[in-house]
Each structure stands twice: as C-alpha cells, then as structure tokens.
C-alpha cells in the first residue's frame, strides 16, 4: 500500500515538474547531458526527502529549491566555483555554441542566452525564475534563500545587464 502510494505520488510529481525543472536546470547548466544528470539527481533528492514536505502549498517552491541547489552544486563541482571571470563567461558562452542540442539559427536568441549566462549565478537564477517560470518574488526569495527585496533588485539589475550586453554585442 505504501509502495503504491509512493508510486502514485512519484508519477504525479514527475508529470507536473519534469519539464519545468528540466528547463530551469538546462538554463543554468547549458548542456543537455548535464541537465539530464542534474534532473535525475533532483528527483532522487525529492523522493528521499519527500516526508519532510509538510505543507503541500510549498511543494513548487520546495522542488525548485532542490533543483536549483543541485544545479548550482553541479556547476561548482564542474568549475570548482561559479564566478564572473571573463574566462569563465567566455567558456560558458563557448559551451553554448558547442552544445549539440542548441539551435544556432537565430543569432538574437543565442546572444540573449549568452547575456544570461554572463550574469552572476544569483542574478541568473532570479532572472530565469521570474522571466521564464513567471514565479512571484516571494517564491523566488524562498527558493534562493534570500529576501523579496533582494530578489527584485537582482531581477532589475539582471535585466539591465542583459540589455546592455545585447546592445554592445549586436
């Protein structure tokens, strides 16, 4: 009975969050293969700690927090640390061009993603969660363990930087 309940819950969560979490992770780690690995680790963590989720209303925040932590942990492992060094940014931008599952046909879309990748990790995560996932600032603050005000500020700074990056590189 417990296994059956667990299986039903697993199916439900995978159906609901597989795609949004995949895209959230993919925007952070860029490569499809890496996103796939991080997504698997994320779901393993979700089910290992499922009993800790007391409030069902916080489910979305909780799963996004796990996915974000897994993606950032993975980035730290891969690059030792996530920084905004010029070399680091150019290597991430290069990896975007070298990635197999990237459509290189639209130059503006590529430039836009390169601009996002060039942001510091916190601004990148805030921008993606707000712009693509349309999450409210209080949820973003919960996911990234920050304040609502800091999330708003990071979003506006990120938008400004992306705008400048595109205008400078067009």
């Amino acid at each position: 009975m417990q296994i059956f309940r667990r299986k039903t819950k697993a199916d439900e969560l995978i159906e609901r969050y597989q795609q949004p979490l995949y895209w959230h992770i993919r925007r952070l780690v860029v490569s499809h293969d890496d996103a796939q690995d991080v997504l698997q680790d994320t779901f393993v963590q979700i089910f290992l700690h499922l009993s800790e989720l007391r409030n069902a209303d916080l489910e979305r925040v909780w799963v996004y927090r796990i996915a974000t932590n897994e993606a950032l942990q993975w980035l730290r492992k891969k690059h030792e640390f996530v920084s905004l060094d010029t070399d680091e940014v150019s290597s991430l931008a290069d990896s975007l061009m070298a990635e197999e599952y990237v459509d290189t046909g639209d130059a503006l879309l590529l430039l836009f993603q390169q601009a996002i990748i060039s942001l510091p990790t916190m601004q990148q995560a805030v921008f993606n969660l707000r712009y693509y996932d349309e999450l409210p600032y209080d949820d973003i603050a919960e996911i990234l363990n920050t304040t609502q005000g800091a999330a708003k500020t990071n979003y506006h700074i990120a938008k400004e930087k992306i705008s400048n990056y595109i205008l400078n590189h067009q």
Binding site: I3, R6, K7, A10, D11, I14, E15, Q18, Q19, Y22, Q36, L39, Q40, F43, V44, I46, F47, L48, L50
Partner: peptide, 16 residues
C-alpha cells in the same frame, strides 16, 4: 521527455 519520465519513475520509486 516521454523516455525520461519513465526512467525517472523507475529510478525514484526504486531508489528511495
């Protein structure tokens, strides 16, 4: 996504 969903279901139901 179809393949991945099945893999994830197998993985998370067995592992935890």
């Amino acid at each position: 996504f179809e393949q991945s969903a099945q893999q994830l279901k197998d993985l998370v139901v067995a592992k935890p």
